[in-house]
Amino acid sequence: MQLYNNLSAKERAKLIEQAGKDRLTVSFYKYAKIGNPKIFRNHLFMAWDHLEVLGRIYVAQEGINAQLSLPAENFHAFKAHLDSIVFLENVRLNIAVEQDNFSFLKLKIKVRSKILADGLNDATFDVTNKGEHVDAEKFNALIEDPNTVLVDMRNHYESEIGHFKNAITPDVDTFRESLPIIEDDLKAHKEDKNLVMYCTGGIRCEKASAYYKHKGFKKVFQLEGGIINYVHQVNEKGLENKFIGKNFVFDDRRAERISDHIIAQCHQCGSPADVHTNCANEACHLLFIQCEACKEKMENCCSSTCQEITHLPYEEQKALRKGQGNSNDIFKKGRADHLPYKKDLRNIFETLQTPTTSK
């Protein structure tokens, strides 16, 4: 049985288009003890490839973290397969708010040392002693409590385009960076404040809540199912939506629009914009925010230098990349020095005001 992809992303996209099937984008995670992640990985690949599942899945001895898409008509078969695995029976599945048949174009199931790069030594604390999970209704009530500190556990480029009102948005590039920063800045409030956290689908808060309880925080809460589940509950129950802007997602959609607010700006001209793109120069590939006018003017490039390179014959571009590796800018995610309107650095405890709606 083949345990790898034999089609390119372009070839897969063409097949999806020809098939004409509606696909669902789904995510889930589960912390559990997996004795042999490699065997488990192979089992998943064989079962899911048959169901036309595409996506990015990480498997480790501590569990599974999955973002994927599949034909809607195969969803019940997929759910039945998950339920046949003891620790995944009735696992919460986050269905995307906005669907796109091309959100994933390959099935990648990778064995990792961890399903989340948190930089923590799990042996030093009880990872099962988690914070209280709250639904959308209780979450809304908690964040209106003056005794609550609301913290966004995502990275700067995620919260830049959307976040909950009055949330603290750490100015970090990775999840592991945020943990000690938040702990230090909130150390005076370990006993008297509600520490309420949220992230995209819940996995980061799952680990962070246990970590902060270990560090002495007494009242720790996390949004059940993250932003994705929150939006579904708000729509189903007719609750007030307290999320403003877009929810960044880690697939080809890049984001789901949750409200009409545009709270970010084009990194090149400063006009209201919240669409992330990757620089068209493959040697750069910088992730940044670009408005439609700049996209047309700069031909999807982050700089005039990159634009000039994309006009070179392909073989010349390939020769320029040879031996160079990725540009360092690729890891800056919108913070490259040549972007005049990149996100400004700000203190973690800056009070956020409700932004003016732009559209």
Rank of each mutant, 00 (worst) to 15 (best):
G35D: 15
N194H: 11
G245R: 00
G63V: 05
A293P: 06
T169N: 15
L339W: 04
I109M: 11
A60F: 05
T124Q: 14
I168H: 09
K38Y: 08
K165D: 10
A66L: 08
D118K: 01
A77C: 09
H261A: 13
A167M: 13
L320E: 05
L7K: 12
C294W: 00
P71C: 06
V231C: 12
H267A: 04
Q353V: 10
D118V: 10
N94D: 12
V196A: 11
Y58M: 11
A77I: 12
K193F: 07
H133A: 14
I309A: 10
I228P: 00
E11M: 12
A208M: 07
I227F: 08
E132D: 12
A141R: 13
M153S: 06
K333N: 08
I115N: 09
P313W: 06
I330K: 09
H189R: 05
L195R: 02
N36E: 15
T351W: 10
A273Y: 03
Y198G: 01
T25S: 10
A141W: 04
S103F: 07
K359F: 08
A77S: 14
A255I: 08
Q2H: 12
Q265S: 15
L120G: 01
R41Q: 15
V151C: 14
E240V: 13
T124C: 10
K79Q: 15
F175C: 04
L70D: 01
K342P: 04
A9E: 15
N65G: 04
H276T: 01
P180A: 07
S103L: 03
H50M: 13
T354C: 12
N65Q: 07
F243N: 06
P180M: 09
L107W: 04
L3W: 06
D83N: 11
M298A: 05
Y4D: 14
I348K: 03
V220E: 06
